[in-house]
Write a protein that binds this DNA or RNA. Structure first.
Lengths: 228, 228
DNA sequence: TACCTTAGTGTACAAATTACCCCCTTAGCC
DNA sequence: GGCTAAGGGGGTAATTTGTACACTAAGGTA
């Protein structure tokens, strides 16, 4: 079939905003740029669209190659199309939000160039990546309240305190411990793991695990997930 | 500055899912294709990315040129990148949701090729546009419950019954009239217009108007908008 | 004027959210 | 071994929010 006439051809890239949670704070995984433009600044892990691959497949490849992550919860964030967002030439940016478990990242790949940053303490960023991250954060704050995505950021087995710290960090407000526990357990989405925390400091805590199957079936029955 | 090496250049297009509300049903504005591929099928109003324009600006141009719409509520929906979504060549699709007032569309432009369809009775669609619309509908169902976007689909002055019909149509369930009114008025986002419906059949109804300024200030104070 | 259609209203009950505090267990220190 | 510091874990009452439910009012049409 004939090619399309008069249509502009431009570069297309994928940028992943990779979130995880560690030590009481939501974190974002960034890469230090070696080369110009913006050498020395930090950027979102990304690459150009590959032939015969969808943008989703490209995003998964980025996670794999740049951070050694084999599985993640991926979600489209949006596109960024300012003609000058890349000083070299026009590049349409397509962004994903990836939620991963902190321990899944091997920080050895690409040496010191890969690093986690608390979302409140971001380094100088290249291109329009500061704006992309801003939008990703708003999206996270919104979605966390209506969709059970927080669990993707924690280890498979987690304590209720960990989960509460996560919500507190993202929503930027303290939550009442008893009310939080009552609410989250009443959602009937967590099952208790056999073990308690072992290497824990102080008193051991009960470990829970998110039951995704249960969530899907409850959702189909019209049950709503909302948390503060 | 030098161009980027080894980067694929592809076509980029914008497709708008244009929603409005009329006669008890959520509607989508579609265009009948004259030419191959998919001649005779219907498509989302769209065009290719223009030089020196953002995708947002391109989306506004589409609304203007294809439907004579001068103002709309625009929101990114997402991107579609299957390598075969256009049989002619690779085209990355970027979609917006546009919410407009039904009366704002001049259906004379482009003759009979432009037409509204109830979202439950869509005609055969070109490309992957059926999939795009499906995702747009899910987005609408979700957002309508947590963001005050329904008002964008109604005339500036509307009756509470109209608003209720809109929610019933999108959420696909009947709502209790008294509870709906109580709830919507308690949100304190509507102000009464001076007039009542005049050309109305039967008993005249009170007209209301959405106060966006009030919404923004209440939102900043932490007030949440949720509706069923 | 009878009848049909749409507008508009209140109350009682159930469910969800919020505010609020004390004791238990363990690790580390002396 | 005893003390202290740090985190784990549990319940109740007040308030707010959601839900179920039925009649009267106004206006148009036959």
């Amino acid at each position: 079939m004939e090619k399309i006439q008069n249509s502009l051809r431009v570069s297309v890239e994928v940028n992943n905003v990779i979130f995880s949670f560690h030590e009481k704070s939501l974190k974002i995984l960034l890469l230090k740029r070696a080369d110009d433009p913006f050498a020395g600044k930090w950027e979102l892990p990304g690459c150009y669209l590959e032939e015969e691959k969808t943008l989703e497949e490209t995003a998964i490849n980025i996670l794999n190659r740049k951070a050694g992550i084999s599985s993640a919860f991926l979600n489209q964030l949006g596109f960024f199309s300012d003609p000058d967002r890349d000083p070299r030439e026009r590049v349409i940016g397509n962004s994903f939000i990836a939620l991963i478990k902190y321990m899944d990242v091997g920080l050895n790949k690409e040496g010191d160039h890969l690093s986690w940053f608390a979302y409140t303490e971001l380094p100088p960023l290249a291109f329009d990546h500061a704006a992309i991250i801003q939008i990703a954060l708003e999206e996270m704050k919104f979605k966390l309240r209506f969709q059970p995505i927080g669990f993707e950021l924690l280890p498979e087995d987690f304590t209720l305190t960990q989960l509460q710290r996560l919500y507190e960090s993202v929503l930027e407000k303290p939550l009442d411990k008893r009310n939080f526990r009552k609410k989250i357990l009443s959602l009937d989405l967590l099952e208790q793991s056999k073990d308690m925390t072992s290497e824990a400091e102080k008193r051991a805590a009960t470990l829970y695990r998110f039951d995704k199957t249960k969530y899907v079936s409850l959702k189909e029955k019209g049950k709503k997930f909302t948390l503060y």
